[in-house]
Simulated assay, not measured.
Amino acid sequence: MQLDTTDRRILKVLQTEGRISNADLAERISLSPSACHRRVQRLEHDGYISGYVALLDARKIGRPATVFVEITLSSQSDEVLDAFEKGVAKIPDVLECHLMAGNADYLIKLMVEDTEDFARIHRRYLARLPGIAQMHSSFALRTVVKTTALDL
């Protein structure tokens, strides 16, 4: 399915206002409520909309620090990669983990309370992951840009 201009307008609004009512969305993009509802259902069914979430304020829940961890594995074999990925998927504090091209094999993103909280996560989980040859951690000093919205 190709996205037309109306689909893109729907997606732009829903990315920033996921709780907007169908009636308000329909009015905003100049469609009837029934046509708008059908389009949103089709966008969901076709996988353009993968879900709806509440975005939490990490500071308010006590996790103001962002940490990025670069992992280099001892080998690129399928067994080592699979074992690492299964292990990292079980860590409750991991927000994102990406297989990378470049200096590191994986990049992990965490939100932590402070350095002591990160040390706990490191000892309990990260240091026990299989296949790690090197690990480098960096604390973000300030977030300059943060969005979940894709440019359409």
Rank of each mutant, 00 (worst) to 15 (best):
Q2C: 03
Q2D: 08
L3S: 11
L3C: 05
D4L: 06
D4C: 05
T5C: 00
T6V: 15
D7R: 03
D7Y: 04
R8L: 15
R8Y: 04
R8A: 11
R9A: 15
R9F: 01
I10N: 02
L14V: 06
L14D: 09
L14C: 06
Q15V: 03
E17Q: 15
G18W: 08
G18K: 09
I20G: 11
S21Y: 05
S21H: 05
N22A: 06
N22V: 10
A23W: 01
A23I: 12
D24N: 14
D24C: 04
L25V: 08
L25C: 02
A26W: 02
E27W: 03
R28F: 03
S30H: 10
S30P: 01
L31D: 08
L31F: 09
S32P: 01
P33L: 01
P33N: 02
P33C: 01
S34K: 03
S34Q: 14
A35S: 15
C36Y: 06
H37W: 11
R38K: 15
R38H: 09
R39E: 01
V40C: 05
V40D: 00
Q41L: 13
Q41H: 11
R42F: 11
L43P: 06
H45D: 13
H45F: 12
Y48G: 09
Y48L: 04
S50G: 14
Y52K: 05
V53G: 01
V53P: 00
L55R: 14
L55E: 14
D57E: 10
A58Q: 13
A58T: 09
A58L: 04
K60F: 05
G62N: 10
A65F: 08
E70R: 05
E70I: 03
I71R: 08
T72I: 12
L73D: 02
S74R: 15
S75K: 10
S75F: 06
Q76H: 13
D78V: 14
D78I: 12
V80K: 00
G87R: 13
G87E: 04
V88D: 04
I91Q: 09
I91F: 08
I91W: 10
P92A: 10
L95P: 00
L95F: 05
L99T: 09
L99P: 03
M100Y: 04
M100H: 02
A101Q: 07
N103H: 09
N103V: 12
N103Q: 11
A104E: 12
D105C: 06
D105F: 05
I108W: 07
V112S: 01
T115A: 11
E116W: 07
A119C: 02
A119S: 14
R120I: 04
R120S: 04
R123W: 02
R123G: 07
R123Y: 03
R124K: 11
Y125A: 11
Y125W: 15
A127N: 12
R128D: 12
R128S: 10
G131A: 04
G131D: 07
G131I: 05
I132G: 00
A133S: 09
Q134T: 11
H136D: 11
H136Y: 09
S138W: 02
L141N: 12
L141E: 07
R142L: 06
V144K: 12
V144E: 13
V145I: 15
K146R: 12
T147L: 02
T148D: 10
T148A: 12
D151L: 14
D151N: 15
L152C: 07
